[in-house]
């Protein structure tokens, strides 16, 4: 299973989950099978005049992730992601990817609807 996180910088599993989605610095795609991760840069979106959420949502879909963990999503990002099969969970911003994985596995993260 692949989990994608909205993060503030590229520090592997120690990356901090961002409070922003469309204008996050990047996404960390974690592959559970081989315990490894890939960095997806989002800096080009950080200063977009509009539609940052749309582009970020598109990046999440194209990453092939099964699960998204990050902040709440805006209406435009939501309408893109709800057309995909990605399961959406509200992560805890400020905590690391590793901590969020544990919370997710313990069933402590809420589904975003």
């Amino acid at each position: 299973m692949k989990i994608i996180f909205s993060v503030t910088e590229n520090k592997g599993k120690q990356s901090i989950v961002d409070a922003r989605f469309g204008r996050a610095a990047g996404f960390f795609l974690f592959d559970e099978e081989n315990d490894s991760g890939t960095w997806i840069d989002n800096t080009s979106n950080m200063n977009a005049a509009g539609g940052a959420g749309v582009q970020a949502a598109q990046a999440v879909v194209s990453s092939g992730a099964d699960v998204y963990i990050g902040p709440q999503l805006g209406p435009k990002a939501m309408s893109v992601l709800s057309m995909s099969k990605v399961q959406l969970f509200e992560g805890v911003p400020g905590k690391t990817v590793e901590e969020n994985i544990e919370l997710y596995k313990a069933g402590k993260l809420l589904k975003i609807r």
Partner: peptide, 17 residues
């Protein structure tokens, strides 16, 4: 203007953008 999301099986046009 990031007004289009092209998904593998769906295209969304955000009219307001």
């Amino acid at each position: 203007f990031n007004a289009i999301a092209a998904l593998p099986n769906y295209v969304i046009v955000f009219q307001e953008l």
